[in-house]
Amino acid sequence: MTTTAPAELRRLLSGPGMVRAPGVYDGISAHLVRRAGFRAAYLTGAGAVASGYGLPDIGLATATEMADRAALVVEASGLPVVADADTGYGNPMHVVRTVRAYERAGVAAIQLEDQDFPKRCGHLTDKSVISADDFVRKLAAALDARENDTLVIARTDARGPLGLDEAITRAHRYAAEGADMIFVEAPQSVAEIERIAAEVQAPLVFNVVPAGRTPAVPDADLEKIGFRMAIYPGALLQPATLAMAAALVDLGGEDPDVAEGPLGIFRAVGFDDWAALGDRYR
């Protein structure tokens, strides 16, 4: 009998070692992750909207656009894909539709976050979150809607706007409500990372974002303190973007001047213009 993607991911998570899932966003990145020998892939929302739609990661993508991208990378990679689903693209009713679409795409896990709409990349400033009660309703909708034993990852972005204590409180609650894994986004020191690992009694996801708000921690240390999965959303997108910029200069073009880090990529695809629009109509 063929093993389903969720079952394979659950098997990997129950085995030895931390599961490492590089960020993929198109067909070639998905193929390369498989060919490099990785056992799972992460559909990065930031990468998908930047590469696929030329947009910054500030809540501009739709559920159907992301589900289409998920189907593409699932087919190309042949791996269990952990798929970013942002806020679920609306209220609990919309979350149900999103889960159904992502399951049709064949993902192994769906990541939902408690940001307000429109969301922002987790390593940008000026984030806001909905109440824990409101997110729990979304989480319940996702857990009820799934039909393929797809894992549901609950991410809290509360560390930035509300502090680490609130983020950990939410992590405890989301785990108690039935989330398969917990993801506390953007801790700001090694001490905070260690506290999350020590206090949150659930399988944990760690987000590796060079030049982001979280300090670099070796994978071996993450595994040692108890993280079960690490995702690397910019591991391919950042060097690929910088390499394209350098290639254009080699061809005689002007330097596109892409800065390192998430904001550098977002600015390359119009972040400042979209931010100005947001401010105009706020």
Rank of each mutant, 00 (worst) to 15 (best):
R34H: 13
I265Q: 03
A41H: 06
L13D: 12
P210N: 14
F135C: 05
T2N: 07
L60D: 10
L9F: 12
P118Q: 12
D180K: 06
A191T: 10
V208M: 15
V81N: 02
K127N: 00
D257C: 05
R228W: 01
L9T: 10
V33K: 02
V190G: 05
D279W: 00
A108L: 09
E199T: 12
P218I: 08
V96S: 04
A83C: 03
T150R: 06
L151P: 04
D165C: 05
K138T: 07
R34W: 01
E65R: 09
D133H: 03
V49Q: 09
R146W: 06
S51G: 00
A216I: 13
A243F: 08
Y42C: 06
V269W: 11
V24M: 04
L12P: 09
F206Y: 15
T214H: 09
G178L: 11
A40T: 08
V81I: 15
P161A: 09
A132D: 02
H31C: 03
A246I: 00
A5H: 11
E65Y: 11
G17C: 13
T4F: 07
L277A: 14
L79V: 09
F206W: 14
A154C: 05
G160Y: 03
L55S: 02
R11W: 09
Y53N: 00
R155T: 05
G270I: 14
A70S: 10
F38R: 04
D134Q: 10
P239G: 08
